[in-house]
Design a protein around this nucleic acid. Structure first.
Lengths: 338, 338
DNA sequence: GCTGGCACTCGAAACGGCGGAGTGCCAGGC
DNA sequence: GCCTGGCACTCCGCCGTTTCGAGTGCCAGC
């Protein structure tokens, strides 16, 4: 366990390094912070902190920079979540209130997060699997061709084409549409399958293949995980740091282009707790010098999707966490209203 | 007018510079190309080319690099469109054939273009304004709340919420839905407005406000230009060149984040002719050292949207143009099938 | 009009010296 | 036992100098 003052030294190092982006030495520390001790004492503390792996020096006789472990301790023990100013809150609300549909909400959220944190923003579309059915529509495009349109309570619309072997009558289609909706509207996706299982039986044997086809497509759409869409923005903010890592920007950009990586990035935590993943805590190699701050958001009490930002490990954690949390809350409100 | 050989020299300079990314000198030119003349002669030609503004030297006693004007001449007079190998063609087809819906088609196209050209790919969603109506659906979410779903022949789905002052009966809604569809299905967007103008008159006066509201929203959706969505990919490819311009990548990334800039980037040409915009020919400052190769694509004979790539002015024009054209054709086919 | 030769230019890389920030350690004081 | 001032040492980054070489422009000759 580290003494109180050593923690204080670590905090000072993190704060200074985040601000200046340069290794920080003992003398500069005592000048910029009221530690009440001399540089020599700070040096001793630093030696201990280095032994414990919280800080490191890029090379002998340079200042110290925090390690991933150091940042971790900082975030866990010392960093509160910095609340936003009321001006910022108003800005968020104004920015999000003008959204016309779900795409727009997500797009605005991404831009907002990127501007607020000056980092790369990542927003997941409300997940299909955690939302509920608002309406199912069936359209006969051709006698044997049906389009299935699924509308969720989060405003998302999914569509699928279904080719039937035999023509399907309009009345059958209308019947199916009515029964389907009466059973599934308002239900969570996960609850739908058992509710529609027996539907084909109530139809004329001739029509059962078509009905089964529609149901199969519907269920497939419901469980399909691959369609977890994600929007990304603020990539230009990566360049703010590239005088330090001209090399690192490349793999980061590459990683961010992979939908799968992005999805994993936002993490598994489904509740609304905020997760911070620092440097090597990220599974992906290209992201070893970045940190991810993510949190779930939703229209009700449960998260239906996540959003977050990706930035250098050397980031302003309290401020970033504050912005991410605030944006998530407002987006949740917006979704609840629509 | 330049002599034949001088054009040849320019072509050689462009090709070498694109390959090596380094200023090319007279000696290297004669070694790598069979020009049939000595370096001294090439030097004289280069001096002329420089006087005319086709090439420039970064500093005295360095090799020459093409100017925007030089690239322009190269593209106009000398660069054919390089056809793809049959392996590449097969790859394109395989890659695009697996698409399940419009989003997927666009997403795959972006990835494909980015990989093929190793540059930043930009794909515009099939524009609403140039496509036709496949179906209009009206859903009563609540007694006085209607959701309008518009499905286009390119597979795109738009949705809007409509709040009515008074409840709307189910039969009225069904009636409106039927009449609406019988009039507009298959019509181009631009042709729709006159066809529905008189619809409210045929309804009970009590229902006319609601009907008018639905129509207004429909027309608004049809003309709404702001919803021109664009997908972008391959941003990581920008970093391939950043040892040359570490500075320029920043404004480029910023420019690419602006939807409006992207839209203008793809240009105004609505037919299927390919446009190449080189360096300063781009209106946007941040893109002064990039070139844009764009072409329209569509399910029929007319273009419904555009796609293209953004890369450094120093790009392989014939190859890029070949890839862009080929991808556009395949996407057109895919859209026509669905 | 092409060619070889030659002097010249200028950036890139290599070299070396210097300054300064920062460290570790030690002896002394509270 | 902990803090402090002092001191010697290390090593990066900066800067002026030198060297090297690719490339040029020009000129005289064929």
């Amino acid at each position: 366990m580290l003494s109180e003052r050593r923690l204080e030294v670590l905090r000072a190092i993190v704060q200074d390094y985040v601000g200046t982006e340069e290794p920080v030495g003992s003398k500069a520390l005592t000048e910029r912070h009221r530690l009440g001790v001399s540089p020599a004492t700070v040096r001793n503390d630093m030696a201990v902190l280095e032994d414990e792996g919280y800080i490191a020096q890029p090379h002998t006789s340079a200042g110290r920079i925090p390690t991933d472990k150091g940042y971790r301790l900082f975030v866990d023990k010392m960093a509160g979540v910095k609340p936003l100013s009321s001006a910022e809150r108003r800005a968020i609300q104004n920015f999000l209130d003008g959204a016309v549909d779900l795409d727009d909400v997500v797009a605005r959220t991404v831009r907002l997060l990127a501007q607020l944190t000056r980092q790369v923003a990542v927003v997941q579309y409300p997940s299909l699997t955690r939302s509920a059915v608002r309406h199912v529509e069936l359209l006969a495009l051709a006698p044997a061709r049906i389009m299935l349109v699924l509308i969720t309570d989060t405003g998302r619309v999914e569509q699928r084409l279904i080719d039937c072997q035999a023509p399907v009558g309009d009345t059958v289609l209308a019947d199916l549409r009515a029964r389907l909706n009466s059973r599934v509207v308002g239900r969570r996706f996960a609850d739908v399958p058992p509710l529609v299982q027996d539907l084909p039986e109530s139809f004329d044997p001739d029509d059962r293949p078509a009905v089964a086809g529609v149901l199969a497509t519907l269920l497939e759409t419901l469980v399909e995980q691959t369609e977890e869409r994600i929007m990304l923005g603020g990539a230009a903010n990566l360049t703010r740091f590239n005088h330090d890592f001209p090399l690192t920007i490349r793999p980061v950009l590459e990683a961010l282009e992979e939908q799968m990586v992005l999805l994993k990035l936002l993490g598994e935590a489904t509740d609304s707790a905020m997760t911070v993943r620092i440097g090597h805590e990220n599974f992906h190699e290209g992201l070893n010098s970045t940190s991810v701050v993510a949190v779930g958001y939703g229209s009700g009490d449960e998260a239906v999707a996540k959003l977050g930002v990706v930035g250098p490990t050397r980031m302003d954690y309290p401020g970033t966490m504050g912005a991410v949390r605030a944006v998530a809350r407002y987006v949740g409100q917006i979704l609840a209203e629509s």
